[in-house]
Design a protein around this nucleic acid. Sequence first.
DNA 1: TTTAATTATGACACCGGTGTCATAATGTTT
DNA 2: AAACATTATGACACCGGTGTCATAATTAAA
Lengths: 337, 337
Amino acid sequence: MKKVTINSVASHAGVSKKTVSRVLNNEPNVSASTREKVLNTFKELNYSPSPIARGLAQNRSFIIGCIYDNPSKSYITRVQTGALAACQENNYNLLIHPCELRGEALIENIQQLFQTSRPDGIVLTPPFSDFAEVVEFLKSKNIPYARVASATLKDDSITVRSNDEQGAFEITQHLIELGHKQIAFIKGHPDHSATAQRFKGYLRALAQNNIEFKDELVEEGNFSYHSGVDSARSILDLSPRPTAVFASNDYMAAAVLKLASQRKLNVPDDISIAGFDNAPIARHIWPGLTTIAQPVEEMTKQAVTQLISHISQPQEEPYQLTLEAELITRESTAKIN
Amino acid sequence: MKKVTINSVASHAGVSKKTVSRVLNNEPNVSASTREKVLNTFKELNYSPSPIARGLAQNRSFIIGCIYDNPSKSYITRVQTGALAACQENNYNLLIHPCELRGEALIENIQQLFQTSRPDGIVLTPPFSDFAEVVEFLKSKNIPYARVASATLKDDSITVRSNDEQGAFEITQHLIELGHKQIAFIKGHPDHSATAQRFKGYLRALAQNNIEFKDELVEEGNFSYHSGVDSARSILDLSPRPTAVFASNDYMAAAVLKLASQRKLNVPDDISIAGFDNAPIARHIWPGLTTIAQPVEEMTKQAVTQLISHISQPQEEPYQLTLEAELITRESTAKIN
DNA sequence: TTTAATTATGACACCGGTGTCATAATGTTT
DNA sequence: AAACATTATGACACCGGTGTCATAATTAAA
């Protein structure tokens, strides 16, 4: 299979390469007959343009960088799926960039990513979507970016989030409706804005039902399974023991469940447990976790789609979208007895 | 920040751009003093070459495509981690390509991947590493590729695998040493060569211990959690019930555990359960799963590293490497009582 | 010291597209 | 039919590097 370039197409169709280029880019001022002739040659020669040459000429890379640092593999995969979908629709490539750095080193790392790979835009996912330093850096370098699942940091950039506060409210409400009043809460990682949002939802549900908030029922986690184990220990040691635990994500909820099982507690009869995110583990364990499902793929896809369209023609209006989350009830929560 | 090109560097250093190019590529025939002068200019101007321009000139993309289709998100993430590590060390970009297609459509899809993104090489991960059609296609198109975790398909390509057979042998041996004789086995997806290998290891351990193989103890799974549930049902319905279950991966093992819990069976007292892969879920559930840990990141990193070095200078000897797996014992397996 | 071999360097075309601008072809207005 | 506006097309430079080859500078051999 020898290479088919724009020159082969041009000479085969009997036109100049500039005209071929016009057809390629759907530019105006090409006669219908010429356009068709060229289009046919595309098929005949099985031509597809070189993104590299295009990139060089237009000073673009057709690459979107996706920066993330998340302990949940399923979350990462979902982010990737959404981002990939948007990229494929627009003939972009996705460059994944897991990154555990913070502060100075983080900025340097992102800078290096730019020097070496030159993405046309960046999708920031939690917790980076909330890092002012990162956003400032991108803005100062004039690099297009979009933010996924950020609740704080109101700026004029593309932002797609889901309603974490409402989700947390609903799940707490669900527990309250089952008769629970002593509902422990495990916070997520303080860097993530979702952490504050979910806590707010928890508080709102308590307030709305006139349930007193008790500080000792709240534990600081960080979204990792391990942190969940520690928090679970403190909670299960409380006396009286809470009748329900709402963990800010499913991994921590699974940790609570594991510890409860180790202590021969029956879930949900002795204690109800709820999580957040609807990670695979939520249905892989017994009992299955009541949790909140967010449209992660959709959020990311929207964000990337907007980002790409912003790259080709910068928009006036910042694109901001909030999608709703959905309560999923499984076996881990039940009426208090 | 205005752009720094090879021309800026050349004029600033007072040499031709070709000489700058020589320094960039560590070519010989540059005097020490000139080299140093250019190197200093690099730093001074904070220059980094454009991979796109380089790519156009050398007809390369500096992209490695990674094709996968695996129900385990953690496996995918580990593959990505290893591949990324190798890419970053060699200034390549990684293009992830999840792909659920098979047969004709699969080949077309890969072909399209080539037309649009033009990767310099491809890493095949299970089950694609074992698909003769894919390998044949790549070979016919003269596209460099490496295969991860393939046990069958002996060809002369770069292949890095882990010893699935030995791992399965060890875990079965472990169960036997605990006194188990009725050991059920859940197979993986038939497309994956690991499936046959793990089964072979199971058989070898039985044979070596003079334990009769019973066909009814073997169930066909496909590595998904869901298939594990089905297989678990059949196994737990057997009478007499096997005293141990060895599932070909952790998700299916988790399914067995879930079903056993639902049936109020105590694991490991009533029944021992073992998995394979050491997925996160293996330690996130209670009791933790005895399983086999494979060096997935390392395998992939090795494969990609070899692939990249093969791209720049094709090797005579095919690179073939087998890494060892490791038995991890947790609470899900115990002495028969 | 000359000559030959080797090393260092730069001019220039080229990779495969796109942008700019001049010009040719066509359509419209008077 | 002449003058003008519009649409269609191509020539050519350019994007930022690398490959080829000629030549200049240096070193080794005669």
